[in-house]
């Protein structure tokens, strides 16, 4: 029987500091064993437990898309013990992972509709996976218009800047970036995400919205989506909770009868409205 607590070995192929505050580092991991690579099937929105022996594990959203083969990408905010170790680990080293874990975004529900993606700060990781997935030629036709609103405090804190530039040049995606404080080279918008959303006022007609970011951003963005008449059933978010097992055993991440690790991390607002506010 498979032991779900044992990490599989990955090799850190490439690591790169993402942001000007140097608190975010993107890791590109390659599979050490071919079998593991073949059996690793995931969808955007799922996460893995990254394991540094001697330090412990941390749950991190998969930032790469299933359409990008041969590696997995994670972007790590330096916060505590494990995430700090993930900042110091050298290229070529072994990192254990367990996954893919969680439900991921409801890709099937998005099909045939417009997609509105709203992200703030470093919570953009799995949103990047989602957008990259639908931008892939094989999947692009599955959704109609894609609108991405992405905000950070400063331009230097935006993730995946090269890719954002590339997205900007595309005509099958509308990208709006915004910052709280601009610098001299900034060409995007200035202002908070909720206000930017209000300003560009995307139609809720046949549209699903996905929103990830700091709790405060979510708190103020949600009413704006309601004002735009997005129904609860079509607003999705990815939640965070302290986690250990990642597979619904250790008990810690439940919200009501659902476990964020196993039944989430992606929930619709319709689901959340029926649960205690334990998040």
């Amino acid at each position: 029987m498979k032991n779900p607590y044992l990490p599989i070995p990955m090799i850190l192929k490439k690591a790169q500091i993402e942001t000007s505050d140097r608190l975010l580092r993107t890791l590109e991991l390659g599979f050490k064993n071919k079998e593991d690579e073949e059996s690793f099937r995931f969808i955007p929105g799922q996460f893995c437990e990254l394991s540094i022996l001697g330090k412990g594990e941390a749950p991190l959203g998969i930032a790469s898309s299933p359409t990008e083969k041969g590696f997995l990408k994670f972007t790590v905010n330096k916060a505590g013990v494990v995430t700090t170790a993930l900042h110091h680990i050298e290229e070529g080293s072994e990192i254990g992972i367990r996954g893919p874990l969680g439900n991921g975004y409801p890709i099937n529900l998005f099909e045939g509709k417009n997609l509105l993606v709203i992200g703030g700060g470093f919570a953009f990781t799995t949103l990047r996976s989602l957008v990259a997935y639908f931008l892939h030629p094989e999947h692009r036709a599955k959704v109609k218009e894609i609108t991405v609103i992405y905000g950070a405090r400063m331009p230097g804190l935006l993730l995946y800047k090269d890719e954002l530039l590339e997205w900007e040049r595309r005509n099958d995606l509308k990208l709006v970036t915004t910052v709280d404080w601009e610098d001299k080279d900034w060409k995007g918008k200035v202002g908070l995400v909720p206000n930017v959303l209000e300003e560009i006022a995307p139609s809720s007609e046949n549209t699903s919205a996905v929103i990830c970011g700091p709790p405060i951003m979510i708190k103020f963005t949600f009413p704006k989506l309601m004002a735009l008449r997005f129904p609860n059933e079509r607003i999705f978010t990815s939640l965070e909770r302290r986690m250990k097992c990642g597979i619904g055993k250790c008990g810690r991440c439940n919200i009501g009868h659902l476990y964020v690790c196993k039944d989430g991390p992606v929930f619709s607002y319709a689901q959340l409205s029926k649960l205690p506010k334990d998040y």
Binding site: Y5, L53, C250
Partner: peptide
Amino acid sequence: CHCFDMVDEALNNKGQRVRNWD
């Protein structure tokens, strides 16, 4: 009650992952 915590206990190059009731 079945809640548990998972922690690493390591010294030099050897260690173990332990679970404890939580």
